[in-house]
Simulated scan of single mutants.
Amino acid sequence: MTLTSKKAIKRVIILGIDGAGTFIREAETPYIDELLAGGAQTSQALTAFPSNSGECWGSLLHGVMPERHESHVHIQNNRSFPANSPAPSLFQILREARPDSTMAAFVSWKPIITGIIEEIPGMEKCAAPDEQLVPAIGAYLRTNPGLELLFVQLDDVDAAGHRHGYGDESTEYLKAITRADRQIGEIGKELLEAGMLDDSLLIITTDHGGGGVDTFSHGSDAPQDMTIFWGCRGPGVSPEADLSGLSIMDTAAVALYAIGLQIPSDWDAKVPAGLLT
Rank of each mutant, 00 (worst) to 15 (best):
H162K: 11
D130N: 08
D168T: 12
I184F: 02
I187Q: 10
T178N: 00
P129S: 08
I116T: 15
T143H: 13
T178L: 05
N144W: 03
G188A: 02
P129R: 12
E119K: 14
E172T: 05
A176Q: 06
A139K: 15
Q183R: 15
A139F: 00
R163S: 12
S170E: 02
S170K: 03
I137P: 07
T143P: 00
M123N: 11
D130L: 02
I116L: 06
A136I: 02
V157C: 03
T114D: 13
D155C: 04
Y140S: 09
G122M: 07
I184T: 07
H162R: 05
E190K: 08
R163Q: 14
D158H: 08
I116P: 01
A159Y: 10
P135I: 03
Y173A: 11
D155A: 13
L147Y: 13
L150I: 04
G115S: 08
I112R: 08
V152K: 09
D156W: 09
T143F: 00
G115R: 10
E172R: 13
P145R: 12
T178C: 02
A139D: 15
G165W: 08
D130S: 04
E186H: 02
P121Q: 11
P145A: 11
G188W: 03
E193M: 10
I120V: 14
Y140G: 05
T114F: 09
A194E: 01
G167K: 04
G167I: 11
F151N: 03
I116C: 14
A180L: 08
R142K: 15
L141K: 06
L154V: 09
E148S: 13
G185K: 05
M123T: 01
G188D: 01
R163Y: 03
E186G: 03
T171A: 15
A127S: 15
H162N: 13
P129M: 10
K189A: 10
R182M: 12
I187A: 01
V134P: 01
D181V: 02
I116R: 07
V134D: 01
A159S: 13
V134G: 01
Y140H: 15
G115P: 08
H164G: 00
A139Q: 14
Y173E: 02
R142G: 13
L174C: 10
S170W: 05
I177G: 04
H164K: 02
P129C: 10
R142W: 00
V152W: 05
E118K: 13
I120M: 08
I137Q: 04
E186A: 15
P145T: 03
L149R: 05
A194P: 05
N144T: 13
I113K: 04
Y140A: 09
I112K: 11
H162D: 06
H162C: 04
R163G: 00
V152P: 00
T143A: 14
S170R: 07
I117H: 06
Y140M: 09
A160H: 08
D155K: 14
R182W: 04
L174M: 11
E186Q: 15
P145W: 01
M123W: 12
E169W: 01
R163N: 07
E172L: 15
D130G: 07
C126K: 14
T114R: 14
A128I: 08
E190D: 13
R142E: 15
D156T: 14
I117D: 09
C126W: 06
P121M: 10
E118A: 10
